[in-house]
Design a protein around this nucleic acid. Structure first.
Lengths: 338, 338
DNA sequence: CTATTTTACTAAACTGGTTTAGTCACATGT
DNA sequence: ACATGTGACTAAACCAGTTTAGTAAAATAG
C-alpha cells in the first residue's frame, strides 16, 4: 500500500474508464479481441484509450501468471573483465533476438557470492541461467541439475557434471598452437600458465605436452612456468627472470591466456628484448597484439558463436524442460597464425 | 496453465501441508510471526517444513504486491566495451550492497534500441534506470522526467535536460591535461578527437582551446584533427599522415579518448616513431599505456566512484519519488601525470 | 412465435505473495 | 454470571495481469 505516484495505468483503469470488464480489455490488448468476439468498435475504443493514456503492461503480473519471465540470468566471474564483457554482449544480443532480457551478476570469483546469486536469480523466476562458473561450485550446479532447472555452462565446465556447456577444445587448440610453433623450427617452447586448477587450464597443459612429445621433443619441466594469479604482474617478472637464466636458449612461448602474453610482452619491452626473437602463441585474441607483438599466433575464442550457442542450448532446455542436457558443445577457436 | 514440472513449493503448499492458512505461513516466513501472535511451536513447524522442502519465495509475486522489484535497469552504449563493462561492474557491486540486481541492456549506440529497452525495463517494473545515453535520445529522457520515473544519466549528459547525472568535468580535465603538456614546454599540441557531437567531446575541445589560449599560445586549426568514428583505425592513419606533413614540428598530442591514443601509438610504432618525442595526454586510463607509452599523461575516470555515486543518486530518487533531481554530480578525474 | 445460434461481453478464479479486519475459544476481572 | 481481554489463527481482498466458463440480448431458424 505504498502511496507512490501512479506512473502508468492498468487494465483495470482502462476497464473502468470505458465501462468494460477487465476481461474485454485484456482480450483486446492481447490482440485476440476478434477471436473472442469483441466488436471492432470496442476494440478501437480500448486501443485508443490505451494509447492516449500511455498504457504499459506490467510484465511482472504477466510473468506471475504465465510462469515465464522472459529473463535469463548470466553469472560471470567478473563483468569488468573484457572477455566476459564481450561474452555478455554476445549473449545479450542473442537473447534480445528471442525477446529475452538478461540480468548480469558478477561473482567476483567468489563461490559464496555465486551461489547466492544463482539462488536470487531463481527466486526472481529467471527462465534459465548461463553460468561461467568459478572454482568449487559443483554442489550448487548439481542441485540445479537435480531440480531440472535449465542452465548452460560457458567458458568453463566440470567434467564430472552432466550439464550443457559451451567451451572451446582446449587440448586441440593448445596442441595446434604449439605444433605450429614447432613447425616453424622452435625447439624450446616455454609454457607460461597460471597456478589454477580449473579444467580449461589443465587441458591446455595437456595440449602443450602432447604437441611437444608428439613432435619428438622432450618435455622439459624447466620450461613449465606457473604464474601466481594473485600478483600476476610482479610474479611474471620473477618467473621470466628465472626462466631466461635457467634456459637462455628458450626460443618460443606458449601462453595459456592473453593476460600472461601481455605481461610477458611488457617484460620484453621493459628489458629491450625484441619479441620477434621468439615464436609466440596464446589463447585469446587481444587487439593490442597487432601493435606490440605482430608475430603472436592466436587462437581467437569465437565469442559471438559461443554466446549464440549457449542461448540456443538454454532455449532448447527451457522449451522442453524434460529434455536431458545435450551435453557439451565444443566450438572451434579461430586460428590466426603467421 | 503450462504443465511445467513444479520446481519449488509455494506458501500455499506449506499451508496445505501443515493445515494452516496462507496468512499464518506468510507471517512466519516474513519473520513477523511473533508480532502477529503465532505460537512458537507453529512457527517452528512452518520453518522446518519450508527448510525441508527447500522453499524459495517467488520474488515476482512479492514485487507485484509491493510495487518494488529491487531491480534496476542499466542501459549502456555497448557492454562489450571495456569502459562500460567496468562501469557496469562498479554499478553492479554498489547495487548488490543495497540488495538490488541489475538488468543490463546494450543499445549498441542505436537510439531506437535504446528507447525500446527503456520501455521494456519500465514494463519489467525496474525501480529505476541508470543510462549512459546515446545521441538523440532527449525525447525519451524528457518523457521519463515528465512521468517522474527515477533515473540517472552517467558518463554522458544533456545540458538541456534537468536530470540527475554523474560525469567528470570535461572542460576542467582537458584544460589541466593540456596545460600540463604546455608547462612541460610543448607548444604545438595536436587535438586528436572524434567526429561526434556528444556533449562530452565538445566540452573536451573547449578545455583544450582554453588551455591553449589561456597559456598565450595560438589556436591553430591545423592541429585540430577529427577522426571518423565508423572507420577509426584507417582514418587515424590518414589524419596523422596529413598532420605530420602539414605541421612537422608538432610536439604534443592530446587525445579526447584512449581509443584514439591507442590508434596513434600504434601508428607511431608502425612508422618507427618514438612516442617519447612527444608530449602525450588523454582522457581514460588504459593499462597497456604503461607498456607502450609510459610517458602518457592520463586523466583516469574514477569508475568505481561514478558507479557508487550514480546508485546513490538513484536510490535517493527511488526512496523519495517526489524529490526533484539533485542535478549534476561532477566527479574529479584522477590525474596521472609525469 | 418459440427454439437455437450468434454476438458481445463479463464474473470469478488463478498466478504467489502481503495485509487488513476479523473470528473463535479460552482466561481473567468484577 | 457476564463482560472484557487475549492468544492463536484465518477469510478475503489486493497487486495486475490471463483464462475459463458463462450470460444476456439480438439475430436467425424452423
Amino acid at each position: 500500500m505504498p502511496e507512490i505516484a501512479k506512473m502508468s495505468i492498468t487494465i483495470k483503469d482502462i476497464a473502468k474508464g470505458l465501462n468494460l470488464s477487465k476481461t474485454t480489455v485484456s482480450f483486446v490488448l492481447s490482440g485476440i479481441g476478434s477471436n473472442k468476439g469483441i466488436s471492432i468498435s470496442t476494440q478501437y475504443r480500448v486501443l485508443q484509450y490505451a494509447r492516449e493514456h500511455n498504457y504499459q503492461p506490467n510484465l511482472l503480473a504477466k510473468s506471475l501468471h504465465s510462469g515465464m519471465s522472459h529473463t535469463i540470468g548470466l553469472v560471470v566471474p567478473s563483468i569488468g573483465d573484457l572477455y566476459y564483457a564481450e561474452l555478455a554482449k554476445a549473449i545479450e544480443a542473442e537473447a534480445k533476438k528471442r525477446g529475452y532480457l538478461i540480468i548480469i551478476c558478477s561473482s567476483e570469483r567468489d563461490v559464496v557470492q555465486e551461489v547466492k546469486m544463482i539462488r536470487t536469480l531463481k527466486a526472481k523466476q529467471v527462465d534459465g541461467l548461463i553460468i561461467a562458473p568459478t572454482e568449487h561450485c559443483e554442489t550448487e550446479l548439481r542441485s540445479l541439475l537435480r531440480e531440472n532447472f535449465p542452465f548452460v555452462l560457458i567458458d568453463r565446465y566440470y567434467p564430472s557434471i552432466a550439464a550443457n556447456y559451451v567451451v572451446i577444445d582446449d587440448v586441440k587448440t593448445s596442441f595446434e598452437l604449439v605444433s605450429h610453433l614447432i613447425s616453424q623450427g622452435r625447439r624450446k617452447i616455454a609454457l607460461i600458465t597460471a597456478d589454477t586448477k580449473i579444467t580449461a587450464i589443465y587441458l591446455r597443459h595437456e595440449g602443450y605436452r602432447m604437441a611437444v612429445e608428439g613432435n619428438g621433443l622432450e618435455y622439459d619441466p624447466r620450461l613449465h612456468c606457473e604464474v601466481r594469479r594473485n600478483d600476476y604482474s610482479k610474479n611474471t617478472i620473477e618467473v621470466l627472470d628465472r626462466l631466461l637464466e635457467e634456459v637462455p636458449d628458450v626460443d618460443g612461448f606458449y601462453f595459456t591466456t592473453h593476460y600472461l602474453a601481455l605481461e610477458t610482452i611488457t617484460y620484453f619491452m621493459r628489458n629491450n628484448i625484441d619479441p620477434r626473437r621468439y615464436g609466440l602463441a596464446c589463447i585469446h585474441q587481444n587487439p593490442i597484439f597487432a601493435t606490440i607483438a605482430p608475430g603472436m599466433n592466436v587462437a581467437r575464442i569465437p565469442i559471438e558463436d559461443m554466446g549464440a550457442k549457449s542461448i540456443g542450448l538454454l532455449m532448447d532446455n527451457i522449451d522442453d524442460p524434460k529434455c536431458k542436457p545435450h551435453g557439451g558443445c565444443i566450438v572451434d577457436a579461430e586460428m590466426v597464425l603467421n
